[in-house]
Simulated scan of single mutants.
Amino acid sequence: MAADILYCLTDRYDWIAAELENQIVFMMRDGTAAIQLRGKKIINSLHTKSKKPEFL
């Protein structure tokens, strides 16, 4: 899924995370069960990633 690749790029480009979440929510509206499951996993990962403190 292209969303997985974009998720990997969120470390490098901060703006991708917000747009990726919006697009996944849009796809999940009428998506299959597989798209909805994968979308939930990616969104949860995005939220978990954003809560981690940065130590730099």
Rank of each mutant, 00 (worst) to 15 (best):
Y13V: 10
L6K: 00
R29V: 13
R29K: 15
P53L: 08
K41L: 14
R12H: 01
L56D: 02
E19H: 12
M27L: 15
P53V: 04
F26D: 07
K49Q: 12
E19G: 11
A18C: 03
D14S: 11
F55M: 10
N44W: 04
Y7K: 08
I35T: 13
K52L: 12
M1S: 10
L37F: 13
L56G: 04
D4L: 07
S45Y: 06
L20Y: 04
D11K: 04
S50V: 07
D4V: 02
Y13G: 00
P53A: 09
V25K: 14
N44V: 01
A17M: 04
Q23M: 11
A18W: 04
N44C: 12
A18D: 10
I35L: 12
D4W: 04
P53G: 05
I43C: 09
W15R: 09
R29T: 12
V25W: 03
I16S: 08
R12L: 02
L6T: 00
K49M: 10
I35S: 07
A33R: 12
N44Q: 13
K49N: 09
A17H: 01
K52V: 07
F26R: 11
A17F: 01
M27Q: 13
H47D: 09
A18G: 08
A34E: 10
D14A: 13
A18I: 03
L6I: 00
M1C: 02
F55H: 10
K51E: 11
A33V: 10
Q36N: 15
A33E: 14
R29G: 08
D30A: 15
L9Q: 09
G31D: 06
T10A: 01
E54A: 12
H47Y: 05
D4T: 05
R12M: 01
Y7M: 05
T32R: 10
I5P: 00
G31R: 07
A18R: 08
E19Y: 10
D14I: 03
Y7W: 02
S45K: 14
H47A: 11
K51W: 05
S45I: 01
G31Y: 06
V25I: 12
K40F: 05
I5L: 11
Q23P: 01
I42Q: 05
Q23N: 13
F55E: 08
A2T: 03
A18E: 10
A3G: 01
Q36F: 05
V25Q: 11
